[in-house]
Amino acid sequence: MEILDLALAERKLGKQAKQFDSLMTLNRDRHEEIKYRLRQRGLSLVQIARDLGISAGSVTAVSQGHRRSRRVEQALAEALETTPKELFPDRSMGRKKQ
C-alpha cells in the first residue's frame, strides 16, 4: 500500500513540476514582452522603479512573477496603456474590480 501511495505522490509532484516550469516560462516571456513594449515607448523598468521610489529589482521581480505588487502592476499597466488584469491575467484572482 505504501509503494502505491509513494508512486501516486511522485506522479503528482511530477505534474506540479511541469506546471511550474510552464508558468515560469510564461512569466519570463511576459517579462521580456513588458521590457520590449516599454522600450517601444522610450521607457524602462528602471524608470518605472524611479517613478515609484523603489528599486529596479523590485519592479523586475514583479514583472517576472516572483513577487506581487498591485502598485507596481498598476504602474506597468499604465505605462503600457492597458490594465493590470490584461497585463497579468493569472494574478487577477481576488483582485477588486477597477
Rank of each mutant, 00 (worst) to 15 (best):
M1P: 08
M1H: 11
E2N: 09
I3G: 01
D5Q: 05
L6M: 04
A7L: 12
A7N: 08
A7H: 07
A7S: 10
A7M: 07
L8K: 14
L8D: 15
L8F: 13
A9N: 11
E10P: 05
E10R: 04
E10W: 02
R11F: 13
R11D: 08
L13W: 01
G14F: 05
K15T: 07
K15R: 14
Q16R: 08
A17K: 13
K18W: 10
Q19S: 13
F20S: 15
F20T: 15
F20E: 15
D21F: 15
S22C: 12
S22F: 08
L23W: 07
M24G: 11
M24E: 11
T25N: 07
L26D: 12
L26S: 15
L26C: 12
N27E: 12
N27K: 09
N27H: 11
R28F: 05
D29E: 06
R30T: 00
R30P: 00
H31N: 02
H31F: 02
E32W: 03
I34V: 02
I34G: 00
K35S: 08
K35R: 14
K35G: 05
Y36I: 13
Y36G: 09
R37Q: 05
R37E: 08
L38D: 01
L38F: 04
L38N: 01
R39D: 13
R39Q: 12
Q40P: 10
Q40K: 15
Q40C: 13
R41D: 06
R41C: 10
R41W: 07
G42Q: 09
G42N: 11
L43R: 12
L43D: 14
S44P: 13
Q47L: 14
Q47S: 15
A49R: 04
A49E: 06
R50F: 09
R50A: 14
R50I: 10
R50Q: 11
D51W: 13
D51Y: 09
G53Q: 06
G53M: 07
I54K: 04
I54L: 10
S55F: 12
A56Q: 15
A56E: 13
V59A: 10
T60G: 13
T60I: 14
T60A: 15
T60K: 14
T60Q: 14
A61V: 07
A61E: 11
A61H: 05
V62W: 00
V62I: 03
V62D: 00
V62L: 01
S63D: 02
G65D: 00
H66E: 08
R68Q: 09
R68D: 13
R68K: 12
R68L: 10
S69L: 04
S69Q: 03
R70F: 12
R71D: 12
R71N: 12
V72R: 03
E73P: 05
A75E: 06
L76C: 07
L76F: 05
L76R: 02
L76K: 03
A77N: 02
A77F: 03
E78H: 15
A79T: 11
L80T: 03
L80F: 04
T83D: 02
P84S: 03
P84D: 02
E86L: 07
E86D: 08
L87S: 00
L87I: 01
F88R: 02
F88M: 04
F88L: 03
P89K: 00
P89Q: 00
D90Y: 10
D90P: 06
D90S: 11
R91W: 11
R91C: 06
S92T: 05
M93V: 13
M93A: 13
M93R: 15
G94F: 00
R95W: 05
K96H: 02
K96A: 02
K97D: 03
K97N: 03
K97F: 00
